[in-house]
Write a protein that binds this DNA or RNA. Structure first.
Lengths: 190, 190, 190, 190
DNA sequence: TATGAATGAGCATTCATTCAT
DNA sequence: AATGAATGAATGCTCATTCAT
């Protein structure tokens, strides 16, 4: 009788271990052995849940991207303007968890260079993110439908740009400073 | 007397080959063999000019960072406002060359996660870049000295954020669109 | 459950292969590939049992040193004088097996020059050997306790000196001649 | 006009550098680069004086073996008994120079395992050494001609055995102790 | 399901050697 | 004579992967 295992849960657990290793040692340091050890298993186990390393990485990336949408539910109770602000601020690397996910994102961006499949995942996630922000831009009355995409792009650019700087110079970018720059970008136009 | 070789020039030539490989295949794909082949030499030659792979990568990164300053001279003939705009626009991945350098930058950002020396290089280059932009912000009268840093950070954030999006979704980001978002960020305040 | 393997036995088996290669081709010829091939495995397997080459060599050396004590049990039934003679004679390179172990010993002596850890192993093994011979010297009544160490050193020196000559000039040193010189050294004093 | 160079002198100078490197780092550490650097030249120069590494090593070994005979002249003024004692004592590793040559000898003994040419050199040098000692044994009246070879072998064995022990346990073997064991072996028989 | 033994390709690196200057 | 640029084979080692148990 085989032990009962929740396969999806185990995959997520292993992907989380992979994320931690990637954030700590980069993708180059994320060997099967290392990831397995981080998760408390052996390499053989990894193979049970992911046919090969490539699939492990792809799944880990997808989980990391999915995180952006994870907080959506709580926004349903907010006004569109609040939801927009919350969406942008929660993307900043202002705590350990979001920092970890940013490091993973950067690692996968670098990896995407050589892997069209990852590049497509990344591109589609971005497009969906942009649509989502654009909807909130319209709903909150910041811009007319025709200008929503530009405004969304501008806002996302500010968030991503701040995040990249904050990631590699945390001393210059305490959480308050990160939020302040984003809040400025959200300030009423004119 | 042995064959005469300009060592610095040869190092730059090899680093350029490394950049091309990294842009094409990521850092993981930048094996000594691959870089040597791209440059038209053998691995032994690489070792002649860089004591090990780490030094090759560090040098390649430094050359990539140095590129940001390479265009400075031409800006001496511009007004501060023109120089500011030129600095920001020339950082966008709007042609093959700047795209290549952005891909290298992303690769090294990912690598910096696990390498404090690269992280320090990256951080210092960013700080210097910010100072330089802040000086132009003041000189062009966009902001008072007290607000120059914030304004510089905001402008750089927009440029970097646009670049990250454009890098992985070139179809959505033709050069004109990239410039237009940056120009909007440069539009007279209020 | 994976294949069942007796790890210690496998390590000994691999060390024995290493000894054969060292005796045949010297330490320089004892590459991981060569040792693995001699043992009938691949390099990857070697790494399974020894974290690196250094550990393989150290273990091989220890096994070679341990051999000196391996014959001790049979000596328990002998008189001290017989045990002393047996100890010394069995150290001579008079058959293929002891010859192989001498060649390994010489190889490690040379290696010890550049490796303090091996040098310490070698020195300690020698000291223990000396103590053991000195005890038999006293027990057999060859010398008083105060002179036992000198007598042990002299006897060991003769054995080692004969061995070194016999090793590189076997034609001049058939087994009988080796034993005869050692027996002369054991002849009743005066 | 080529510079005038005393080729033999230069070869000896390079072999001496090789000896120092071998004594310090073993034969494995005696790369062409390292030997050249120790001598204050470049690898290219080495090749001028030795067609390849093998020849460098062979020549270095020959020079090391030749050293045993170097002190012969001074013995011409001694009585046979004095010359015998001087021959044996001067072979002990009692100072830096003789220690260095012993380390080189051990390194080459190990190397000889895999190199018949070195093994032959070693064997012939030993035979000549033995003849030379046997002659002194007879001349000094220690033994009759028929027993001279055995006595020479015994004496050499003591010296070599002491040397091997002293080489790897200098703390237990100060020069006086080494000489004392050899002097005991030289003590009048019976 | 989970293990870990075994594989073999690929890596960075070292090195003896060749040779244009 | 002397240099050092360039080569490419070999090395120790890492690692994803396979598979018997």
């Amino acid at each position: 009788m085989p032990r009962i295992v929740d396969v999806d849960e185990r995959r997520s657990e292993l992907a989380a271990a992979a994320s931690r290793v990637i954030a700590r040692s980069g993708i180059a340091g994320a060997s099967m052995r290392e990831v397995a050890a981080e998760a408390g298993w052996t390499t053989g186990t990894l193979v049970h849940y992911f046919t090969d390393k490539h699939e492990l990485l792809r799944f880990t990336f997808e989980e990391s991207l999915a995180r952006r949408h994870a907080l959506r539910e709580r926004r349903e109770a907010m006004t569109p303007a609040e939801a927009l602000r919350d969406t942008l601020l929660s993307a900043l690397p202002t705590d350990e968890d979001s920092r970890l996910h940013w490091l993973v994102t950067v690692a996968f961006c670098a990896q995407a260079t050589a892997d069209p499949e990852l590049a497509a995942l990344q591109r589609d996630a971005y497009r969906e993110y942009r649509s989502s922000v654009a909807r909130l831009v319209v709903a909150s009355g910041r811009a007319a439908a025709g200008d929503a995409r530009s405004e969304a792009e501008r806002l996302i650019a500010v968030v991503d740009g701040v995040a990249m700087q904050a990631l590699f110079d945390p001393a210059s970018w305490p959480p308050g400073r990160q939020r302040s720059v984003v809040d400025d970008a959200l300030a009423p136009l004119g």
